[in-house]
Design a binder for these strands. Structure first.
Lengths: 334, 334
DNA sequence: AAAATAAATTGAACCGGTTCAATTTCCTGT
DNA sequence: ACAGGAAATTGAACCGGTTCAATTTATTTT
């Protein structure tokens, strides 16, 4: 059915190796043969079998991308960046979602390895349990780049300065006179969320303040979680004067809840997010994260390693997070 | 470096074929051998090479997904659905984005084929030029499913009843008394946009009305395009009383433009969208599209074909679009 | 015109699996 | 103890490429 190199060999009366050589632009072939091969390949619509090629060359021209959830704008934008760079290199990307499950993450990485990807980009879940699977990658000297560093693992990574982002919003709120601040954190598996929370706590405590447990929420992930947090806040007799959401999606959920109950932002409560997603139309004060650029950087770093060989020194790239002041934070009457 | 089946054979003193057989759960092996093989594989951490396996079995356990833009929530949600079903089948998905370019679309499909994917899901761009590459797939009897049917191509597809969606919004607007309606269409390569526009025109003309050219915009794709359209409308002395946007992202852009200029929706202009994206917090009257379900349906249909063989009759699945009335459309003072 | 050198082409082995006919080993019944 | 049949194991060919030493062909040189 499918045309193979041997078929072409038969048709042109040349040897397999000749066909292969010409098709791979190796030199040492006469112009005549070259033309004959090229012509035949063109005419019969020969499509090389990358699987077979991969088997002998060990290069599959394929990279794996393991993220948490493609439906989240943060990851879809990052993915776009990765894809674009991969395309430039003639690479195709395997997309895997861990769906926030540690076991799935391991499985997906395993699947990528058995498919012999040339390299991996992983946005690992943070788990108490173990990073064995990542250390394994290193031990096997599979080229890989992480989104976010992993303690003790001397690997390439791209990360955002989430701690600093958290610092910036918190200080901004303090400057505007807020003293009672709430925090809607993400899943405990999110490094970004943890860092932001930690920064917030640090800054507050440096000012002699603290996050009150009843104003601290955990596990927010989707819009619906934000809505729920919003509802809870509405139901409270006493509320923080400002709420930091660990990402824009959650913030949007809170906005939605507030809107439907007629609670006004920032008059009745100030609100901030993280990511600065494109689809935001609410004038949310947030922290912008260069997701798309990070995706590109991840891919570029990975290719650096793939082509540079195992002795390429690990690269660490940190992107800054930048406060974007809009109008969801009011100056609090102290 | 990597452990192969031959290595295991050497270590256990058995034949390659025995190792392979046991690992693939074929029967006809003694319990003793079976254990010996399994044990060794486990102990030395054997990972099968899917590339090699793919070469001889012709099954790569891989499908290709070619979409336009992963950063668009419509596609990222659809992708999530595809991925989830693929995962159930132990398949991994290659993600390709055409970035709205017809040539890239062809290339990506080609790349997938040379990687010998077991099947393809394609959201094809609509182009005057040609669907040759899709007809080719059929000719080569590569299993594939399209998002949206292609005229003359008798293939499996999943689509939305975009015409009916367009009908619904338009009628809704007419019922609410709107007579001067604008339309912000997408790229001409979008089937959905075309169908919706066509429906709108049909309904209007059935009521003796028409879309005025100056209220009809083309090529809207991202939020920024919506913003621009919004600005243009603001600058007009005379405006339509309602604007149908071909998707929520564009609608969001219009909302953004209006908000910044203080133009009120729906008081000064009514607005509708399509998709009913999760991140919508603006009470936009829109048409909901079961993107995620469509992704799952696409994948399931594809697997039906992959496992059912070439004689599987083409499946056509049409998902309904449903008007979701919120509060961005007012009853017009005629 | 023969020898030396350079250029072009080829054949066989290999990558890591799968497959299946052929062979070997193990039981069973007599 | 042995023939016969069933069960277990094996070896070789194959999938479709790449690689490279060896061979063949062409071109120079003397």
């Amino acid at each position: 059915m499918k045309l193979t190199i041997s078929d072409l060999a038969k048709m042109t009366g040349l040897a397999k190796s000749t066909i292969s050589g010409v098709l791979n632009n190796k030199d040492g072939f006469s112009e005549k043969t070259r033309q004959k091969v090229l012509q035949a390949a063109e005419q019969y619509g020969y499509v090389p079998n990358e699987i077979a090629r991969g088997l002998s060359t060990k290069y599959t021209k394929t990279i794996g991308l393991v993220i948490k959830d493609i439906a989240n704008p943060f990851y879809s934008k990052l993915t776009k960046g990765v894809q674009e760079v991969a395309g430039e290199y003639g690479y195709t990307v395997f997309l895997c979602s861990s769906f926030e499950d540690h076991h799935t993450e391991k499985e997906q990485i395993q699947a990528m390895l058995s498919r012999r990807v040339d390299g991996l980009i992983v946005a690992p879940l943070l788990e108490e349990v173990t990073f064995d699977h990542l250390f394994d990658l290193k031990a096997k000297s599979v080229p890989f780049v992480l989104l976010g560093s992993v303690p003790g693992l001397d690997s390439s990574y791209v990360e955002f300065d989430d701690y600093d982002g958290g610092r910036q919003v918190t200080e901004h709120l303090l400057e505007r006179g807020h003293r009672s601040i709430g925090f809607a954190a993400g899943l405990p598996t999110s490094r970004a969320s943890r860092e932001r929370l930690r920064a917030c706590r640090d800054v507050l405590s440096a000012h002699g303040l603290a996050l009150r447990p009843e104003f601290t929420f955990e596990g927010a992930q989707e819009l619906a979680d934000g809505v729920e947090i919003g509802r809870k806040l509405i139901a409270m007799k006493e509320r923080p004067s400002a709420l930091i959401c660990f990402d824009d999606v959650v913030a949007l959920g809170v906005v939605k809840a507030f809107q439907s109950e007629g609670l006004r932002i920032p008059e009745e409560m100030s609100l901030t997010g993280f990511d600065d997603i494109d689809l935001m139309i609410f004038p949310l004060t947030t922290v912008s994260i260069p997701t798309y650029e990070a995706g590109k950087a991840l891919a570029r770093t990975l290719f650096g390693r793939i082509f540079g060989g195992p002795d390429t020194p690990p690269q660490r790239i940190v992107f800054d997070e930048k406060l974007v002041v809009r109008s969801s934070v009011r100056t609090a009457a102290n």
